[in-house]
């Protein structure tokens, strides 16, 4: 009578109601690319700086993923390696006050999504991220934008419960962000609008794309 099954007991013990995935201090590697001879302003809006994703998944667990700090670290490293000089701006219009700047880049995190091993029917956490990179000329006019789709996955721990779930999702998120960085640097360097920033008379060339 006083005997009971182990499995349901353990399940009740291990079940968690909410899980927060804090930002990690993972450093993104410096890209092995020649920097473009251009000076650009970088504008991070508050949404990117403080990006937090909330979702309650099918098993009832609510997740909170904090990405703000990681976003800034990612783009600081990426754009810093890509251009000769970068300057952080408080607003896009600030570019008009600095005649040394050739344009402005504004990264936006459009979409973050993840799937748990239960939802995927596998042993992995999978994360997808979509950033959009906006380019403005040195008068603050939008010239072009490019979507960056990225993906990361990480194997779940053997005991996929409680705090053991944070690490794999964090890893999958970091891998997706790293994939985004790789995709962005390869894509952006091939864009004529970006290359136009580096030529003589950049303002005129860049403005040509905005017309």
């Amino acid at each position: 009578m006083n005997k009971f099954r182990v499995t349901p007991f353990l399940t009740i013990l291990l079940c968690a109601c909410s899980t927060t995935v804090p930002p990690t201090d993972t450093e993104f590697p410096t890209p092995l690319v020649e920097d473009l001879p251009a000076a650009v302003g970088i504008y991070y809006d508050d949404e990117l700086r403080n990006f937090t994703y909330n979702e309650t998944v099918s098993d009832g667990t609510s997740w909170t993923i904090e990405l703000g700090q990681s976003n800034l670290r990612l783009f600081d490293r990426l754009l810093g390696a890509m251009f000769d000089r970068t300057v952080q701006l408080r607003s896009i219009d600030d570019v008009r006050n600095d005649p040394t700047l050739d344009g402005v880049i504004r990264p936006v995190l459009e979409e973050y999504a993840f799937l748990t091993p239960n939802e995927l029917g596998s042993r992995f956490y999978a994360v997808s991220i979509r950033y959009r990179i906006y380019l403005y000329d040195n008068q603050g006019n939008e010239i072009a934008d490019w979507p960056i789709n990225a993906y990361g996955q990480s194997r779940a721990a053997v005991l996929n419960a409680g705090r053991m779930r944070v690490g794999p999702l964090q890893d999958a998120t970091n891998l997706a962000m790293r994939d985004a960085a790789a995709g962005a640097i390869i894509l952006l360097r091939e864009q004529p609008e970006i290359m136009a920033l580096t030529t003589e008379g950049t303002a005129d060339d860049a403005a040509m794309f905005s017309e």
Partner: peptide
């Protein structure tokens, strides 16, 4: 190795 050669040996590239 992947860090030193980033982004050229990343999975998608």
């Amino acid at each position: 190795f992947m860090d030193m050669l980033f982004p050229w040996f990343e999975p998608a590239h």
